[in-house]
Design a binder for these strands. Structure first.
Lengths: 228, 228
DNA sequence: TCTTGTAGGATTGTCGACAATCTGCTTGTC
DNA sequence: GACAAGCAGATTGTCGACAATCCTACAAGA
């Protein structure tokens, strides 16, 4: 018999679909930070009852992109400069760890996947699809986490990813211009293929710092506006 | 007017109470790994309807201590040696980061709180209350995370804590004898009060390794039993 | 004028019932 | 006896309605 890998079939609960829809709306910035989610309205729009919607919202609260206040409502989290700073500084540490753990496990499949994801980023960049560009860039970056063979680390990264994607999307919407940032990934991929682990780790740090500076500048602007 | 700090009043939703009850049952080992949670039965026992119970369970699924399979049920997560290994190796990295970030922020209040939590551990140890001993030890350990002034790091730690507490509780139940492990905390506290950050970080690593070895040995036993 | 009490409407939290799905057993056929 | 089809029974997923709570506006009183 031919060896054939079947992927698991899609989750068929409404709840799972609602989670996906809401997450996407939040991470692409369609739902703005601080905005309240009216259960009845959303349930009507999605043509579902409030029960699965509420369960979906609980999941996203635990995922860290919604926040809930009893009897008051559920809101998209606010984005402060400090949150971004916190997320990024933790990300640096995790990157270093992930690269360390992945390093010995790299094989041809890893390199192929790396190229594939890199290509996806470049394609999205050429197509000027900023949302997809952010998504693919984070997926490229996430490969070291998937490869590190540490489930807890991977979970942590996925939680962080949600926030990062949200931050980048907001940043994008504000600037409303495509990001080049292509050569940076070029170097990143090259170093991950090479033999100098410390160099790769160092680059990851610096690469992150780069994006981070831009984000912070944007967010500081946000807070000035909110404070006025 | 006298300055008085009021703490926020407790959440009064059934959901929040159910979450607390379930979490406690899982983390103390009353609900065993792999065990299925029957919604109807639990709802009847708690005298609540299934709606808030299900929402509570979704939260715990996202928290990582329950796992859900659509139309099959929700189960307490299984504990494998690899999971523990993963959690601990990540914990080492986070500890180092947390100590680094906390170091400059230490003040008298920090030291006082450190002593207070240390005292709580010793008290639980003297009282032979192993459940409370685990709880207080993790709280002592968690202080550097609370003090590090990084909300994302703190969240990550809290997620890890849930698992660690569960692991320790299982370990305890299996051995059924009180752990001394008192002097270890003594050293930990002393180093956190001192002036040598690297020494504190190094100790945190070694301290963790110690507990970890015991846990792993226990869990390997578990898997042999399950495999037979 | 400021504070306090009080409806009214809107929204969230909870409940009980129904629909969809899974599991194990029985039955019938070969 | 082996195996597939199909039928309960139990359990999860979803729905619509009710209860509890909050926010707003407005009126009454100091």
């Amino acid at each position: 018999m031919a060896k054939l890998d079947f992927s698991p079939i899609a989750d068929t609960t409404r709840r799972a679909e609602i989670v996906a829809l809401l997450r996407r709306a939040i991470l692409t910035g369609q739902l703005e930070p601080g905005q309240k989610l009216n259960e009845l309205r959303i349930a009507e729009q999605m043509r579902v009852s409030r029960a699965p919607l509420r369960e979906a919202m609980r999941e996203l609260v635990q995922e860290g992109i919604l926040t809930s206040i009893p009897y008051a409502g559920t809101f998209v989290i606010d984005v402060t400069a400090k949150d971004i700073d916190d997320a990024y500084s933790l990300n640096k540490v995790l990157d270093e760890f992930a690269i360390d753990r992945t390093w010995k496990l790299r094989d041809q499949r890893f390199f192929n996947e790396l190229d594939r994801r890199h290509e996806a980023v470049k394609q999205a960049t050429r197509a000027l699809d900023t949302t997809r560009q952010i998504e693919t860039a984070l997926q490229l970056h996430g490969l070291i986490y998937e490869w590190a063979d540490n489930s807890v680390l991977l979970e942590t990264w996925q939680r962080l990813t949600s926030r990062l994607q949200m931050y980048f999307a907001l940043h994008q919407r504000a600037r409303n211009e495509p990001v080049p940032a292509d050569y940076v990934h070029e170097t990143y991929v090259r170093l991950l293929k090479g033999n100098d682990m410390r160099a790769a780790q160092r680059h990851a740090r610096e690469h992150i710092d780069l994006d981070f500076e831009e984000l912070l500048a944007y967010t500081r602007g946000l807070e000035k506006r909110a404070g006025s």
